[in-house]
Computed example of a mutant assay.
Amino acid sequence: MHSNEQTLEKFYSAFARLDSDTMAQCYAADASFDDEVFSLRGHEQVTGMWHMLCDATKAKGHDVWKLQYSGIHADTDSGQAHWEADYRFSATGRMVHNIIDGRFSFTPQGLIATHRDRFDFWAWSRQALGTPGLLLGWTPFLRSKVCATAAANLQKYLAGRQQKGH
């Protein structure tokens, strides 16, 4: 197994346990992360998102949390993984089954430099938001609203972590 595959295995096994501290160890200082909701730059933002999502799941949905991953492959430069998560969306309490494909690049030290997750936003929004997601999940309007809310929640979360000395 290539060492970058080991990095991805470490990342997803920690994610399955909601161990955001171990997940954070897998990212480079100047890492970037993009998905259908977040576009983040730098270790603080990227790992802050994982801390926030893991903390929210522990607080409001640990009983139903399940993560399965497969298809981990990596070489010196790039990698990929498939993962599926079952969780309670904290904002609405609705159950979500999200199917995600991740693509990665790595530093020479074996840390994640770039991480891009792709999933079907409309499918996610129908589950997470109910009727508004069904009716508007395909529109740029709802996507922009969800992205803005997520960005504001992350900024608030990061400010709170700084106050606590993290």
Rank of each mutant, 00 (worst) to 15 (best):
A150W: 01
K145Y: 05
A24Y: 12
A28V: 05
A148K: 15
T92W: 08
A56Y: 06
L135E: 02
A81G: 13
A159S: 14
Q162M: 06
H51Q: 12
P108I: 01
E5K: 06
A74P: 07
M49G: 06
Q162G: 03
L154W: 05
A150S: 12
E44M: 08
V46Y: 08
Y87I: 04
D117N: 09
D30Y: 04
H43Q: 10
F104D: 05
V37Y: 04
N98E: 08
R161V: 07
D35S: 11
L158E: 01
L8K: 03
D101H: 15
D120W: 07
L18D: 00
W124M: 08
E9F: 10
N4G: 04
V146Y: 11
K58T: 08
N153P: 00
A16F: 11
F141R: 07
G110P: 11
D63C: 02
F104A: 03
G165I: 01
S125C: 06
L134V: 04
Y87G: 05
L136S: 06
D30N: 14
K10V: 07
H62V: 03
S70G: 13
L8N: 04
D86P: 00
F141D: 05
N153R: 12
F121A: 08
I72D: 07
R103C: 04
S3C: 01
Y87W: 08
H43Y: 14
H97Y: 06
R118I: 07
N4M: 07
S70Q: 14
H97N: 11
F104R: 01
L129R: 00
F106D: 04
A91W: 11
D86G: 04
M1H: 12
G110I: 02
G133F: 15
F15V: 01
D75W: 03
M1L: 13
A159Q: 12
G110S: 07
F15H: 15
R116D: 12
D55K: 12
V64H: 10
D34S: 12
N98H: 05
Q6A: 12
S144W: 09
Q25V: 00
D35T: 07
E5W: 03
G130W: 00
G71Q: 14
M23D: 10
A31K: 07
A74D: 00
R88A: 06
Y69A: 07
N153H: 10
S90P: 04
C147Y: 01
F11L: 13
I72C: 10
D117W: 13
E9S: 13
K60L: 02
G61P: 09
F106P: 05
